[in-house]
Design a protein around this nucleic acid. Structure first.
Length: 942
RNA sequence: GCCCGGGUGGUGGAACGGCAGACACGGCCGCCUUAAAAGCGGCUGCCGCAAGGCGUGCGGGUUCGACUCCCGCCCCGGGCACCA
C-alpha cells in the first residue's frame, strides 16, 4: 500500500491530515522523548532507583505486570500484545489518576523453544536469544508501551540467574516443619538432631551416625532433593518432564512426543509439603474462579483414611475416602507396579479360585507376570479408551478385613494407579461404580452398606443414606459413620484418618543445555554439596555442542545424556568449600523453563541490587500486605489461561518458601489475576488441504475464494504455517501504533477472545483523524481551538463522558471507554471550532489509548511537558444531572409513547404526562396500575 | 462422564431487572472528484408498500416489566478424566 500512486494520492490529501506517515513521525518522536526523559521510571523507596523528586514519590503505589513472553524466532503477531496494550492503557490511566505505577517488562529467554530454534538454525542459543530479545524490544517499543526500562531483564542474564540459583540454594538449604507449617533453615534441623530433640530414622543417637549417614538423613528433608523415582522420560526431546508438562494422552506438551515412565535420578522440589497452604491461600486471592478451581483440582486434596488389611506378606495399606463402607469391601486391588505383589503371589492357585480369576494361566506367577506385561504395553491413550472394560487378575492371595475378619481375594488391575494414594484399594462395589463394574466381570460379591432411596434403580449407590450391613455403624449417615469408623480404626490399630493429594513433587531437572546450571557439586561420596553464595552465578559454559542428545521418540529404554556432561573441563573442578581444595564434579542437569518465571515478579522491584534478590523495603512498598488479612503481591497480573496451573502454582510455591524464610513480606506473588482473551484468526485451506495466504482470500455470497478456487475456512490460532499471521509492524506501517492500540482495545472486553479483522482497523483510524481534525486545521495546521466556554449541550456531553470513561477505566472496560470517547468526538464535529475545555479533556482521556497522539496534541495545545503526570479529568457532578428526562411509557409491557418532563418533576406530574401521552392506547379505560420508576420509565397496566 | 465459561443484527460487540442492538466494521444512498481512492454526510435487526407485527439458542416460570433472576433442555468453547 505504500507504493500506491506516488503523486496523485498525496496531492489531494490535505497537508496536515493525520495519516499513517504523520502518525509514524509523531510516534517515533515521542518514543525518543519518553526514553530520553525516563518518563515512565517509577521511584523506589530505597536504593539506586529511588528518587524523592519524582512527581509520584510517596504516592499510593500500583504494581501491574504482564506475563512476560518467550522471545521466539518468529516475532510478535497482533495477538501477543493485546494484554500488554491493556495493562499499558490501565497504568497510564492510573498514573494520571495519581498512583505511583510500576509497570515493567522482561523476557523469559531460557527453555525449550529458544533452544530448539537455536538447534534448528545451528546458531548458539545465546546469540539467537539475544537477537530475538532485541527484536521483541523493538517491536514493543514501537507500540509506545510505557515501561520503566531500567527494570527490564532477560532470565538468561547472569545477573538475573545468579538470583535464580540463590533461590535454589534457599530451597535446598531448608526443610518443611509440619509442626509450624512452614519452611525452616536446614541448620535448625541439624540442631534438632544434634540435641536429640528429634529422633533419627533408625533410632541410633545422632553422634553414632557417620558423616555420610548424617548427610543422607538431612538430604531426605530438604525442599530440593534428589530422588530415584518414576519420572516422565521423553526420548524425542532427550529430557525428562514435569507431570504438568505431560498431556492426558501421555505425550509432551511441547513437540507432542511420547513420554515414558522410567526410574531416573532427578532433582525434585517438595511442593507437596505446601499443598494445604497452596490450597487454603487461594481464598485470599482475587483470581478468576475457574483458575482457582483448576488449581484446587490439580492439588486434588482428598480426606479419608488409611486402613491396613492383614495378609500373609504383611499389612496391605489402602487409602479410601469412604472408610464408612469398609464392611462392604469384598475384594482388594493393587496396582500392577505395587511392590507387595511379588511377595503375595503363591506357588499355586488356592482352593476356591474361580476360573475367571486366573486369566487362563496355570499359576498365579504366570498370570501376574502376563498381566503386568499386558498393562505396561498399553499406552495411556489405550488405557483411557479401555477405561470402561475392567481387566485384572487374581494374585492368588487373600487379605483379612479388619472390621469383620472376612477373607477377601486380592487382585491386581490397572484401574488402580500406582501413583495415587497407596497404590492399593479396598473394593466396595456397592458404593463405587468402578468396583461394581469389576465385580460384575469377575463374579465377585456385592454388599450394599448404604441404604439407597426407595426409587433408586442404579447399580453402585454413591449418595448419602443410613449405613446397613455394617455392624456398629448401622443407621448412621455417611458423615457420622466416617467419624465413627476412623475412631474405631485408630483405637484398634488398624488405620487412621488420612489426607492425600493428587499433586506430586515438582520434577526440577532437565537434560538440556539452555537453562540455569545448578549451584551444586558432588564430592567423593556422590552426595550433593551446595556451593556458597559467593560462587554465584555459576555461569553456563560456552560449549561447542549444545544440542541435547535425542533418541528415537519411541525408545523408552534409552537413557538421557546431558549436554553439559560432555564438557569435562567444566564438570571436573577443584574448589575450596571449607575443607581445603578438593576435587568435585558439577551437576550437569539444568533447571526447567519455569525457574526464572517462578520469581521474576520480585526482581523487577530491585533489578540492580547486587547485594540481595530484592531490598526488603522495596518489596514491602510494592508488594507488601495492606493489612493483616491481605496476602500482598502484585496488584494486577495479566496473562493467558494456559498458565493456570504450571507457572502460577510454581511461582506461588517459591514465593511461599521465600516468605517462610523471611526474605519477603508478601505470602502470595499475585494478589489479583486477570486472564485476557486471545486474538484469533481465520485460516483457509484449498481442496488439497494446504493453507493459502489468508490475506488474499475473498468472500463472495458467504463462500470463500482464493483466486477463483473455493477454499474452506477454519478458525483458530495465528501461525506461520497457517498463513494467517498479521504483525503489529504491518499495522503500525499502515495506520500507526496509536490506531492499532485503539483498535485492539475497542474490539471487545479484554477477557474475551475475538477474531482479528484487518479491514475493521480503519474505524479506529477514522476516529483518531476526527480527533485530530477537531483540534488541528488539516489545511493550515493551525489550532482549531477557541478559549470560549463550550455550549451547555457540549459541556454536559463532556462531563457525562468523563464520568463514564473514569468508571470504565477503573473496571478495565476499555472497549466501552473508547466508544464514549468516539461519541464525544462525534459530538464535536457539528461545531465550527472546538472549545479548549473540551479539547484538553478529550486529549487527556484519549492519551492512555493513543499516547503519542495525546502527547502531540497536548504539546500543540501549548503545554511544554509530557501529559503522563497530568491529572485525569474529573466530572462536575452538577453537569451530570439532566435538566429534563424523557420517559418511555409502556402499556402492558410495550412502549407506546415518550414524554419529556423536567428532571425535577414530581412523580404525580410524570404520571399525568404519561397517561395523557398514551390516552389513545388506554382508550378511556382506567389503568389497573401505573408504575413510575423515577428517572427511568412509566409502566401502565390495563 | 464430571466441572467451568459462553450463545444478542451480515460481523466484532453495547445494555444498574426498566426504550434491546451504544460504538465500530460491512452494506446501500449521497457529497466532493474529469475519474477513482481517501475523506465527509445519511440510512441500515427481521417481515411488511404501510399501519403494524416479530425479535437476545429452545421450552417453562417469577415480575407491571426479563438479554439480565429461577427451573428444564439444546448447541459451542475450555479444563479434568478409572484420583479410590
Amino acid at each position: 500500500m505504500a507504493t500506491m500512486s506516488e503523486s496523485t494520492a498525496d496531492r489531494d490529501v490535505p497537508p496536515f491530515r493525520y495519516t499513517a506517515q504523520m502518525a509514524d513521525e509523531i510516534e517515533r518522536r515521542w518514543q525518543d522523548y519518553w526514553e530520553e526523559h525516563g518518563t515512565f521510571n517509577a521511584p523506589n523507596p530505597v536504593g539506586p532507583l529511588s528518587d524523592p523528586d519524582h512527581p509520584r514519590a510517596g504516592a499510593p503505589k500500583l504494581y501491574v505486570m504482564d506475563m512476560f513472553p518467550y522471545p521466539s524466532g518468529s516475532g510478535l503477531h497482533v495477538g501477543h500484545p493485546l494484554g500488554y496494550i491493556g495493562t499499558d492503557c490501565y497504568t497510564r490511566y492510573q498514573r494520571m489518576a495519581g498512583r505511583n505505577v510500576l509497570h515493567p517488562m522482561g523476557f523469559d529467554a531460557f527453555g525449550l523453544p529458544a533452544e530448539q530454534y537455536a538447534v534448528q538454525t545451528g546458531a548458539h542459543p545465546r546469540k539467537t536469544t539475544e537477537e530475538n530479545v532485541a527484536r521483541y524490544r523493538a517491536q514493543l517499543r514501537r507500540l509506545g508501551l510505557a515501561y520503566d526500562n531500567r527494570r527490564s531483564f532477560a532470565t538468561t542474564d547472569p545477573e538475573f540467574y545468579r538470583w535464580t540459583q540463590w533461590i535454589f540454594l534457599q530451597v535446598f538449604n531448608s526443610w518443611y516443619d509440619p509442626a509450624v507449617r512452614k519452611a525452616r533453615p536446614i541448620a535448625e534441623l541439624v540442631a534438632e538432631y544434634e540435641s536429640g530433640a528429634r529422633r533419627t530414622p533408625d533410632g541410633r543417637p545422632w553422634a553414632e551416625l557417620d558423616p555420610v549417614e548424617r548427610r543422607r538423613v538431612i538430604d531426605d528433608h530438604r525442599l530440593a532433593y534428589i530422588s530415584d523415582a518414576p519420572v516422565n522420560w521423553c526420548p524425542g526431546l532427550g529430557t525428562v518432564l514435569a507431570n504438568e508438562e505431560v498431556t492426558a494422552d501421555g505425550r509432551s506438551e511441547r513437540g507432542n512426543f511420547p513420554v515414558f515412565k522410567r526410574n531416573l535420578k532427578q532433582w525434585m522440589m517438595r511442593i507437596t509439603a505446601y499443598a494445604d497452604r497452596l490450597l487454603e491461600d487461594l481464598d485470599l486471592l482475587d483470581w478468576p474462579e475457574p483458575i482457582k478451581l483448576m488449581q484446587r483440582n490439580w492439588i486434588g486434596r482428598s480426606t479419608g483414611a488409611h486402613i491396613d488389611f492383614p495378609t500373609d506378606a504383611g499389612p496391605l495399606r489402602v487409602f479410601t475416602t469412604r472408610p464408612d463402607t469398609v464392611f462392604g469391601a469384598t475384594y482388594m486391588v493393587v496396582a500392577p507396579e505395587h511392590e507387595l505383589v511379588d511377595r503375595l503371589v503363591p506357588a499355586a492357585w488356592p482352593a476356591g479360585t474361580k476360573p475367571a480369576w486366573t486369566g487362563g494361566h496355570a499359576t498365579p506367577r504366570e498370570a501376574v507376570d502376563a498381566y503386568r506385561k499386558f498393562a505396561a504395553a498399553k499406552t495411556d491413550v489405550e488405557r483411557q479408551a479401555d477405561a470402561k472394560e475392567k481387566t485384572g487378575v487374581f494374585v492368588g492371595a487373600y487379605a483379612t478385613n479388619p472390621v469383620n475378619g472376612a477373607r477377601i481375594p486380592i487382585f491386581t488391575a490397572d484401574y488402580v494407579l500406582a501413583g495415587y494414594g497407596t497404590g492399593a484399594i479396598m473394593a466396595v462395589p456397592g458404593q463405587d461404580e468402578r468396583d461394581w463394574e469389576f465385580a460384575e466381570v469377575f463374579d465377585l460379591p456385592i454388599i450394599r452398606t448404604v441404604q439407597p432411596p426407595a426409587d433408586f434403580d442404579g447399580k453402585a449407590y454413591v449418595g448419602d443414606g443410613p449405613a446397613i450391613n455394617s455392624g456398629f455403624l448401622d443407621g448412621l449417615g455417611v458423615e457420622d459413620a466416617k467419624k465413627k469408623i476412623i475412631q474405631w480404626l485408630e483405637e484398634n490399630g488398624h488405620g487412621q484418618g488420612a489426607v492425600t493429594y493428587r499433586l506430586r513433587d515438582w520434577l526440577f531437572s532437565r537434560q538440556r543445555y539452555w537453562g540455569e546450571p545448578f549451584p551444586i557439586v558432588y564430592d567423593e561420596t556422590g552426595l550433593p554439596v551446595a556451593l556458597p553464595e559467593s560462587m554465584l552465578p555459576v555461569e553456563l559454559p560456552d560449549i561447542a555442542d549444545f544440542s541435547p542428545k535425542t533418541f528415537d521418540p519411541e525408545d523408552g529404554d534409552s537413557t538421557p545424556e546431558t549436554p553439559l556432561s560432555r564438557e569435562r573441563q567444566w564438570v571436573e573442578v577443584e574448589l575450596d568449600l571449607g575443607d581445603g581444595p578438593k576435587r568435585y564434579t558439577r551437576e550437569t542437569n539444568v533447571m526447567p523453563q519455569w525457574a526464572g518465571s517462578s520469581w521474576y515478579e520480585l526482581r523487577y522491584l530491585d533489578p540492580a541490587n547486587d547485594q540481595a534478590m530484592v531490598d526488603p523495603a522495596n518489596e514491602r512498598y510494592w508488594m507488601g500486605p495492606r493489612d493483616e488479612r491481605d496476602c500482598g503481591g502484585v496488584d494486577l497480573y495479566v496473562g493467558g489461561v494456559e498458565h493456570a496451573v504450571l507457572h502460577l502454582l510454581y511461582a506461588r510455591f517459591w514465593h511461599k518458601v521465600l516468605y517462610d524464610l523471611g526474605h519477603i513480606s508478601s505470602c502470595e506473588p499475585f494478589r489479583r489475576l486477570f486472564n485476557q482473551g486471545y486474538i484469533q484468526a481465520y485460516a483457509y485451506t484449498d481442496e488439497r488441504g494446504s493453507y493459502v495466504p489468508a490475506e488474499e482470500v475473498v468472500e463472495r455470497d458467504g463462500r470463500y475464494f482464493y483466486g477463483d478456487k473455493p477454499v474452506r475456512r477454519e478458525y483458530g490460532k495465528m501461525g506461520k504455517s497457517l498463513k494467517n499471521v498479521v504483525t503489529p509492524d504491518e499495522m503500525c506501517a499502515a495506520y500507526g501504533a496509536d490506531t492499532f492500540r485503539v483498535y485492539e482495545m475497542s474490539m471487545g472486553p479484554l477477557e474475551v477472545s475475538r477474531p482479528w479483522e484487518t479491514r475493521a482497523v480503519v474505524g479506529s483510524y477514522r476516529f483518531l483523524q476526527r480527533v485530530w481534525r477537531a483540534i488541528v486545521d488539516e489545511q493550515t495546521g493551525a489550532l482549531r481551538v477557541v478559549d470560549e466556554a463550550a455550549d451547555e449541550q457540549t459541556r454536559r456531553l463532556l462531563h457525562r463522558t468523563i464520568d463514564g470513561v473514569r468508571t470504565d477505566m477503573e473496571a478495565m472496560r476499555f472497549n466501552t471507554a473508547v466508544a464514549k470517547l468516539i461519541e464525544l468526538t462525534n459530538g464535536l464535529t457539528r461545531l465550527s471550532a472546538t472549545p479548549r475545555e473540551v479539547a484538553e479533556a478529550l486529549v487527556l482521556m484519549l492519551s492512555p489509548f493513543a499516547p503519542h497522539l495525546g502527547e502531540e496534541l497536548w504539546r500543540r495545545l501549548g503545554h511544554p511537558e509530557s501529559l503522563a503526570y497530568e491529572r485525569f479529568p474529573s466530572a462536575d457532578p452538577a453537569l451530570l444531572v439532566a435538566e429534563s428526562v424523557t420517559y418511555p411509557v409502556q402499556v402492558n409491557g410495550k412502549v407506546r409513547a415518550r414524554v419529556e418532563v423536567p428532571a425535577d418533576a414530581a412523580e404525580d406530574a410524570v404520571r399525568a404526562a404519561a397517561l395523557a401521552a398514551v390516552a389513545e392506547h388506554t382508550a378511556g379505560r382506567e389503568p389497573r396500575k401505573v408504575i413510575v420508576v423515577p428517572g427511568r420509565m412509566v409502566s401502565v397496566v390495563l
